[in-house]
Design a protein around this nucleic acid. Structure first.
Lengths: 196, 196
DNA sequence: GCATTAAATTGACATCGTCAACATTGCGAG
DNA sequence: CTCGCAATGTTGACGATGTCAATTTAATGC
């Protein structure tokens, strides 16, 4: 699908422009007319490919979640053992948020996200599935695994997500080295993950 | 300050209306003209008390953070022992987010927040101070307390914040009982906090 | 009592999302 | 091959929003 016609592939161009804008101006700077302007199209052009702003944001979020899942899976593949893998995934979670803060925030901006869109729903399942699946692997052979697994998954997920979120919002500064907050954040994350 | 004149106390009325709107329509429904309309003032009336939308949001966030701090401190006061207190604060953190989802999300919407406003800055310090301070209390007498305390604080904070955030965004549903997700969430939180 | 200053209103402007009407292009049926 | 149709894009309009400048109204201080 999405063969060239008038423009070439306007849909892809719009998505690329949207990502560029989000990375440059943050999620608040993302506007339907802005992306259209950036690719030299008319202000209502996006309507044909995405229905409205929610549609564009949701499709871009889907792209983000797929890249997010890729990043975590690649990190997991580089480690052996259930526990090491889980920690690697957690680190990848935060690394992604730091590498693409605008995109990450967009992916978790609930108000302008239509999670029923197939692309987004599927990408979310993929991303979160790699995380929770990795937790389940640390409970192999556990008799009453269900409850403990659930709690562990929720804790690991909440921990890295909260850390990433607070970090991007400059809320952890009181806990970080003022000279190199970015690098210190990853050191702090490692301390958290290996805390016992 | 803020004695009555034309309206009575328009500043307080605007803040109350803003909170009402946020709680009813969510943070996306909060608009300068909307709050002015709600109190029967002209559309530019808020400009005199808050400079712009960022100002209004920041002042409302300050109110929220103070209430947030109160809620956590009250919960802490109801328990004895450093560890019980910390868990109680964590529960209060999530309870607050569930009780006032709109306000909580507004308080953590970085883009429209001016953290240099004295009221907001002070309220944030108060809220986060009770949490991190409570963590420090669990490390009394620890020789090399500094590093471990920092990691514990970051972990506790990230955990409850991530949990609250994911919960409000309907992202934890795969882990929750579909029949009573709200109640199950608090049970899951308790499992997380007492995990070992 | 009066002037100064704070508080509030009015009107305007640019931008945004969205919609309806219209134009253009590409594609396939005959 | 061509002609009609549906997919793509464009234009113009509407209401809503944030913000600003100019103006009016009321309270406060001397």
């Amino acid at each position: 699908m999405a063969k060239p016609y008038h423009h070439g592939d306007l849909r892809a161009a719009l998505l690329a422009a949207a990502e560029e804008i989000v990375s440059r101006d943050g999620v608040a700077g993302l506007t339907l007319r802005g992306v259209a302007r950036e690719v030299g199209a008319s202000h209502a052009a996006p309507k044909n490919h995405f229905d409205d702003l929610t549609g564009l944001v949701s499709e871009l979020a889907a792209v983000g979640f797929n890249r997010f899942a890729d990043h975590m899976q690649a990190a997991a593949a580089r480690h052996d053992g259930a526990k090491d893998r889980l920690n690697a995934i957690g680190r990848a979670y935060v690394e992604f948020a730091l590498a693409e803060p605008g995109l990450f925030q967009l992916m978790f901006r609930g108000e302008r996200l239509d999670k029923t869109r197939p692309a987004l729903n599927e990408a979310m399942l993929r991303a979160f599935g790699t995380l929770t699946g990795s937790v389940a692997a640390t409970h192999e052979g556990d008799p009453d695994a269900a409850r403990a697994t659930r709690a562990h998954a929720a804790r690991a997920w909440s921990m890295v997500h909260g850390f990433a979120t607070l970090l991007l919002d400059d809320r952890l500064n009181p806990l970080l080295d003022a000279d190199a907050p970015r690098a210190d954040a990853l050191a702090l994350l490692d301390d958290m993950l290996t805390l016992g």
